[in-house]
Computed example of a mutant assay.
Amino acid sequence: MNISICLATYRRPDRLRLLLDDLVQQRLVPHQVVVIDNDSGRSGSAPVELALAAGAPFHLLYAVEPRKNVAHARNLGIELATGDWLAFIDDDERAPVDWLERLSNAAVAYRADAVQGPVEPVLPDGVAGWLRRGRFYDWPRMASGTVVPRNRLRLGNLLLKRSSLDPGGHHFDPAYGQTGGEDGDWLSRLAQAGTRIVWCDEASVLEPVEPSRLSLRWLLMRSLRGGQDFARHALAGRYGPLNATSRILFFCRALLQCLVALALAVLSLPFGLHRSAHWLSKASANLGKLSAFAGLHYREYA
Score class of each variant (00 low, 15 high):
A95D: 03
W279S: 11
K68Y: 12
A231I: 09
L61Q: 13
D37R: 13
Y10E: 02
A71L: 00
A87T: 06
R253F: 01
V48S: 05
A81W: 11
V29A: 14
G129Y: 00
S188Y: 04
L262Y: 10
Y137V: 05
A54S: 12
L86I: 15
L159N: 12
G117W: 09
A128E: 15
G77N: 04
S281C: 14
L28R: 15
S284A: 15
W85C: 10
S204L: 12
R135V: 00
P96M: 03
D113Y: 06
S40N: 07
A261R: 00
A285Y: 10
K161I: 00
L296N: 10
H274Y: 09
R225P: 05
L249M: 05
W199V: 13
D22L: 00
H274D: 15
Q25N: 13
V34Y: 07
N286M: 09
R17F: 01
R238F: 02
M221D: 11
L214H: 12
F230K: 07
S188L: 07
D113A: 01
L256C: 06
G134L: 04
A54R: 15
S188K: 06
N38C: 05
G237K: 08
L160T: 02
A73P: 11
L123I: 05
L100H: 06
V209S: 04
E93C: 09
G180A: 09
G168I: 01
P124A: 12
R299V: 03
L190A: 08
L267R: 14
G169L: 07
L80T: 03
L235V: 07
L60T: 10
G169M: 00
G129F: 03
A277H: 06
V147P: 04
L103H: 15
R67Q: 13
A294Y: 10
P140R: 10
L86N: 09
W130F: 14
V33Q: 00
Q178R: 14
N75D: 02
G272I: 03
N75Q: 07
C200V: 12
G169D: 05
R275E: 10
G83T: 13
L264K: 14
V64F: 02
